[in-house]
Design a protein around this nucleic acid. Structure first.
Lengths: 107, 107
DNA sequence: TAATTATATAGATACTTATCTATATATTGA
DNA sequence: TCAATATATAGATAAGTATCTATATAATTA
């Protein structure tokens, strides 16, 4: 298991906002443009733009431009990677991450 | 699937910090007391106390007191619930969360 | 070319948070 | 009861962030 806490924390931080969870939920049933996403929220267009930037920067969402529209979709690979990281994180391991056995209590 | 974005965002926010991810990782191999956890970090004891409070408040970690020591352990049920939420979130659904079909693009 | 539309960026503000030092609380043992 | 130890709380600070309004950019259409 990768102990890449900083990188994964960044991805998780992107998901730590109710609005962005809802965006992911909407994108889970297919690609959407920004104006379609915006209809689901009460905040302004620049705020949506901010949220999309966060989701793109962490790799969970991809975007493509077509004419006037920007279409957003889930990056399934990275979404799955995050879930695998979390599953491994909470899974019991005999071997503690503590390599200094004087500090490790693993039986 | 539950669209309980606010509650899940709170749990995810608790995980959105590299130090707290490491704490979860340590606890995944068994119960630890605060002073054992602290040995893995450079920050001070009150900072660890703050992090533990965040993890307990969101339900991911349980604690019990025994003499001078506080022992912390993962709440596996809630950890698993979070992972299931995320898996459902990113899983493709034919039915869009948008109930207003004039706004929904689902095919 | 000018107007319209979709989206992004800039800058401000209010709120949150990770961390620290100092101190309080609670438990144990002498 | 007093000292030592483990942990929590209080309060401060610096950094981050979700949101807004105003404006810029880019693409389309008339």
């Amino acid at each position: 298991m990768e102990n890449n806490y900083d990188d994964n924390a960044k991805v998780i931080k992107a998901l730590s906002d109710a609005s962005r969870l809802k965006i992911i939920d909407i994108l889970s049933c297919g690609e959407r443009c920004a104006c379609e996403l915006l209809e689901h929220f009460d905040f302004t267009q620049p705020t949506l733009s901010h949220h999309m930037k966060v989701l793109i920067d962490c790799g969970l969402v991809a975007s493509r431009k077509e004419g006037l529209w920007n279409y957003y979709s889930l990056n399934s690979t990275n979404c799955n990677k995050l879930i695998l990281f979390l599953m491994n994180l909470i899974t019991y391991t005999d071997e503690c991450i503590c390599k200094d056995k004087t500090k490790c209590q693993c039986k």
